[in-house]
């Protein structure tokens, strides 16, 4: 039914448009959200570069190694936060306006996910652009255009996945306080165990196991492959996992969101 499909796409667009209008309006928040990852990159990047070069392992490339990890972090944080904004909609009553409208629950989830992913991508691109000035260079084997395509594709899938995860969680927790708990208990471990800071190939087995079940690890790995040519998993594995994560989270998010009230 093409009519229904058009309406479905229109609904996704409407939801996305609202997310983006709110995003553009919160300009000061956008700027602060750029500062934190840049600080990570500058301080950790410079700090560890010099520490590692003292150790004599040629650490001058550490900042290049870290940059894709910071991209992954931006997508993770923006995505989860955007998914959890369902909580705020609930708190301020606006969710009722959306839920009572003739709009499928799936289109709401996809529209929100696209909104969060677009925001993450905009921030990622800005940070990556700025990181040029602190010495980050694309040096992989894909060439500049190939690397950019791989970066955008990877950011898209992990972004969508994490918004989906955020929506799933927001659909189950009742209050805003729960939000903080989940952020600390889930987001930080996902970030630290993603290989954003260190290579994951020579970790102790228990830690490696945790990294292996972390979808962000595969996202960061693909991003790192695009930027530096280094990788811990095969690129096909990376892509298969991030696409699988995206599909799974869209389905779970849609199912859980159906029971929100």
């Amino acid at each position: 039914m093409p009519d229904g499909r058009m309406a479905f796409l229109g609904d996704i667009y409407s939801i996305w448009l609202r997310e983006m209008t709110r995003y553009v309006r919160a300009r000061s928040r956008v700027i602060t959200s750029l500062i934190t990852p840049l600080l990570w990159l500058i301080i950790f990047g410079t700090g560890f570069s010099s520490a590692l070069s003292v150790g004599g392992t040629g650490g001058s490339n550490y900042i290049n190694f870290l940059a894709p990890g910071i991209l992954g972090m931006v997508v993770l944080f923006t995505g989860m936060f955007s998914g959890m904004s369902v909580m705020f909609d609930k708190e301020f009553g606006f969710l009722k306006e959306i839920l009572v409208a003739p709009v499928s629950r799936t289109s709401i989830v996809i529209g929100k996910a696209l909104g969060g992913t677009t925001q993450g991508a905009i921030q990622g691109v800005l940070i990556f652009g700025l990181s040029y000035f602190i010495g980050v260079r694309i040096s992989g084997t894909l060439g500049l255009a190939g690397a950019i395509v791989l970066i955008l594709v990877t950011m898209f899938f992990i972004g969508m996945g994490f918004v989906g995860l955020g929506i799933s969680i927001a659909s189950r927790i009742e209050n805003i306080e729960g939000f903080q708990v989940v952020m600390n208990l889930l987001v930080l471990p996902i970030f630290f165990l993603s290989g954003a800071f260190f290579p994951v190939t020579s970790l102790p087995a228990w830690m490696k196991a945790l990294v292996d079940i972390n979808p962000l690890a595969y996202g960061v790995d693909a991003l790192r492959y695009a930027v530096t040519g280094l990788h811990s998993y095969a690129l096909t594995t990376d892509l298969a996992v991030v696409v699988g994560f995206f599909v799974l989270m869209m389905i779970v998010g849609s199912i859980l969101f159906r029971n929100v009230h």
Binding site: Y13, L17, R18, R22, F92, G93, F94, K96, E97, A101
Partner: peptide, 27 residues
């Protein structure tokens, strides 16, 4: 259509944007 008893506007949008969003959702 419904006018809820409790507030249900998006405070971060303008009046017009709230209405426009509604118009889109209701085709």
């Amino acid at each position: 259509g419904i006018v809820f008893q409790d507030p249900s506007l998006d405070d971060n949008l303008t009046g017009k944007e709230n209405l426009d969003f509604h118009g889109r959702l209701y085709k």
